[in-house]
Computed example of a mutant assay.
Amino acid sequence: MNQLFNKFLKKKVLNQEEILNLSVELALEWEQNWNQPIQARLTKKLPSLTAIELDELNRKSKEVLSTGFEIIRTTLGKLTDKGETIKEKDLKADFERELTAFYPWISHANIKSICNQGLYYSWKDGLGECVK
């Protein structure tokens, strides 16, 4: 019986990839947390992280989002300039390949969220007409 309680009481230790993905997930949050530093929210989930580690994770997550959004903007801009179109599923597949080339550790859920947010802002800026 004691082993059963120990199993449930043990906290899972996250590996580096899981911590990076958690950081990106927090950076992707909407509403009051949109585009806000993640350190305080990350500390609640992982209190053992140092201030230096928290700052680095905040920087890295912003870098990942910025890179993802730039991939979308650049791709849609080129297609628009050429008067070409792309199927949304093909755009998302190309985006996933390109983003994972930069960040092989990124989760599928984060790739999907970054792509969707990047598309939202690109469409808002008038670059979505090439997506069919």
Rank of each mutant, 00 (worst) to 15 (best):
K62E: 12
K62P: 07
K62I: 07
E63G: 04
E63L: 06
V64L: 05
V64M: 02
V64Q: 05
V64W: 02
V64G: 04
V64R: 06
S66R: 10
S66A: 09
T67M: 07
T67E: 14
G68Q: 03
G68N: 04
G68C: 02
F69C: 06
F69I: 11
F69E: 10
E70I: 06
E70W: 03
I71V: 09
I71A: 13
I72A: 06
R73D: 11
R73Y: 15
R73L: 06
T74R: 08
T74N: 07
T75Y: 03
L76S: 11
L76D: 03
G77A: 03
K78C: 09
K78V: 13
L79P: 03
L79I: 01
L79M: 04
L79Q: 01
L79S: 01
T80Q: 12
D81S: 08
D81C: 05
K82H: 09
K82V: 15
K82R: 13
G83M: 05
G83V: 01
G83K: 11
E84R: 12
E84G: 04
T85C: 07
T85F: 09
T85H: 13
T85K: 13
T85G: 05
I86T: 00
I86S: 01
I86N: 04
K87A: 13
K87W: 15
K87E: 14
E88S: 13
E88M: 09
E88Q: 09
E88V: 13
K89M: 00
K89P: 05
D90W: 07
D90A: 06
D90P: 00
D90T: 00
D90S: 02
L91R: 02
L91Q: 00
L91T: 02
K92C: 12
K92Q: 14
K92L: 15
A93S: 08
A93C: 10
A93H: 10
D94C: 06
D94Q: 13
D94M: 12
E96S: 12
E96K: 11
R97Q: 14
R97W: 06
R97F: 06
E98F: 04
L99V: 07
L99T: 04
T100G: 02
A101N: 09
A101H: 00
A101Y: 12
F102M: 00
F102V: 14
Y103L: 02
Y103V: 01
Y103D: 01
Y103S: 01
Y103M: 01
P104E: 03
I106M: 07
H108I: 11
H108Q: 08
H108R: 00
A109N: 09
A109K: 10
A109I: 08
N110H: 15
I111V: 12
I111H: 04
I111M: 03
K112I: 08
K112F: 15
K112W: 04
S113E: 08
C115Y: 15
Q117W: 10
Q117M: 13
Q117H: 12
Q117T: 12
L119H: 06
L119F: 05
Y121D: 04
Y121P: 10
Y121A: 07
Y121W: 14
S122E: 05
S122N: 02
S122G: 08
W123F: 13
W123D: 00
W123M: 05
K124H: 11
D125V: 02
D125N: 05
D125A: 07
G126Y: 12
G126A: 11
G126K: 11
L127T: 01
L127Y: 08
G128H: 15
G128Q: 10
G128Y: 14
G128F: 14
E129H: 06
E129T: 11
V131P: 05
V131D: 04
V131Y: 03
V131S: 00
